[in-house]
C-alpha cells in the first residue's frame, strides 16, 4: 500500500513538472513565432484603414505589447486558479472550445487508437509467427512503407482514391456541408470520420506491428519457448507468446496515444475535420495564445494519463510487479 502511495505521489509531482515544462515551451515557441497576430487575423487592408487608437486597442487585445514574462506568469497564475482564459479567435472560454472540439475528435481518436492497436498487434503476431517467410516479408514491407510515409500524405492519397476517384466517401468536414445540425445522422458522422480514422489507424498500426513482431521473435527464440517445445507443448503462440507479448503491447498501445494525437493535428487539417487538432493549428497560426496553451496542456495531460494507465496496468498484468510490490 505504502509502495502504491509513493508511486502515485511521484507520478503526480512528475506530471506537474511536465505540464509546467510543456506550457513554458509552447509559450516560448509561440512568442518566438514571426507571425503578427494583428496582420494574420485582421488583415493588412483592414489594418490600414484603422485609426491608431483602434490599432492600439487591438494590440492590447492580442497582447502584443506586454512583456513575455508578464504574459506567461499571468497565464500561469490564472491557470493555477482554474481559469484558462478566453480564446481570442473564438471569443469563448478555452475549456469550452477544447471540450467542444475534443468531443468532435474523441470518437475519431478512440477509433484510431483501438484499430491501430488491434491491427498492429494482429499483424505483428502474424509476422512474428511466420518470421522469415512470405507473410512476414509482406507485412514488414507494408509496415515499413507506411511508417516512412508522413500521415498527411497518406491522408491525401486516401482522399484521392476514395473521394475523388471512387467518390464513395466525403472529401472533408465532420458532417455534410449545409445540413442543419439536428438533421445530421450518426451514419453521416461515421462516414465523415471514416477516412481520417483510417489514416490515423493505418499510420499507427504500422509502428505497433513492427515492434510487436520483434517482440514475438524474441519470445519465440527464448529459452522458455525452446523448453516448451522440448516438452511437446502445443499452442505455443497462445500459451507463451501472447502472454509475454502482452506487456510490451500495453506499453506500445498507451504510448501511441501521443502519436495518435500528434497525427490528428495534420490529418484533421487535411480533411478539414473540425476537431482538436485543427483548433491547435488555427490557434498556432492565429496567435491565439490562451487556446494554444490550453490545447497543449490538455493533450499533454492526455498523453501523461495514457502512460500512467500503462504503468498501472503493468502492475496488474505482470506478476513480477504485482507480487513484488505486495511482498515489499
Amino acid at each position: 500500500m505504502k509502495h502504491r502511495l509513493q508511486f502515485t505521489a511521484k507520478k503526480l509531482v512528475r506530471m506537474a513538472l511536465l505540464l509546467l515544462g510543456v506550457s513554458l515551451t509552447a509559450f516560448l515557441l509561440m512568442d518566438a513565432s514571426p507571425l503578427d497576430p494583428l496582420q494574420t487575423n485582421i488583415g493588412q487592408a483592414a489594418l490600414g484603414s484603422m485609426s491608431p487608437e483602434q490599432i492600439a486597442r487591438l494590440e492590447d487585445y492580442w497582447g502584443v505589447n506586454a512583456p513575455a514574462a508578464e504574459r506567461y506568469l499571468g497565464w500561469l497564475g490564472d491557470a493555477l486558479r482554474g481559469d484558462f482564459g478566453v480564446s481570442l479567435l473564438y471569443r469563448r472560454p478555452v475549456p469550452e472550445v477544447i471540450g467542444q472540439r475534443l468531443s468532435n475528435s474523441f470518437w475519431l481518436l478512440l477509433t484510431a487508437w483501438v484499430l491501430s492497436g488491434g491491427l498492429g498487434l494482429g499483424l505483428g503476431l502474424l509476422a512474428g509467427a511466420f518470421r522469415g517467410r512470405g507473410p512476414d516479408k509482406m507485412i514488414r514491407g507494408c509496415c515499413l512503407v507506411v511508417s516512412s510515409t508522413p500521415a498527411f500524405w497518406l491522408a491525401l492519397l486516401l482522399l484521392m482514391v476514395f473521394s475523388v476517384w471512387l467518390k464513395v466517401l466525403p472529401v472533408g468536414l465532420s458532417v455534410p456541408a449545409g445540413a442543419a445540425a439536428d438533421s445530421v445522422t450518426l451514419a453521416q458522422r461515421l462516414r465523415h470520420a471514416l477516412l481520417p480514422g483510417l489514416t490515423l489507424s493505418v499510420a499507427g498500426a504500422a509502428g505497433i506491428a513492427l515492434h510487436t513482431r520483434e517482440k514475438v521473435v524474441d519470445v519465440l527464440d527464448s529459452d522458455y519457448v525452446l523448453f516448451a517445445r522440448a516438452r511437446g507443448e502445443g499452442h505455443i503462440l497462445r500459451r507463451h507468446v501472447l502472454r509475454n507479448v502482452a506487456l510490451p503491447a500495453i506499453t506500445l498501445q498507451f504510448a501511441s496515444i501521443s502519436e495518435i494525437i500528434g497525427g490528428s493535428v495534420l490529418v484533421e487539417k487535411v480533411f478539414s475535420y473540425p476537431g482538436l487538432g485543427q483548433a491547435a493549428v488555427s490557434a498556432g497560426l492565429g496567435g491565439d495564445m490562451p487556446l494554444l496553451m490550453g490545447i497543449t496542456v490538455a493533450t499533454a495531460f492526455l498523453v501523461f494519463g495514457g502512460n500512467l494507465a500503462a504503468d498501472l496496468l503493468y502492475g496488474i498484468v505482470d506478476p513480477r510487479i504485482r507480487r513484488g510490490a505486495a511482498a515489499g
Binding site: S222, D223, Y224, F227, E233, N244, A246, P319
Partner: peptide, 18 residues
C-alpha cells in the same frame, strides 16, 4: 518430445516468467 524424451535445461530462464 515430452513423452519419452525429456530435457532438463540449465536454469530458471527456461520457465515462462508470466
Amino acid at each position: 518430445r515430452g513423452r519419452e524424451i525429456a530435457l532438463i535445461p540449465q536454469g530458471v530462464t527456461y520457465l515462462d516468467p508470466m
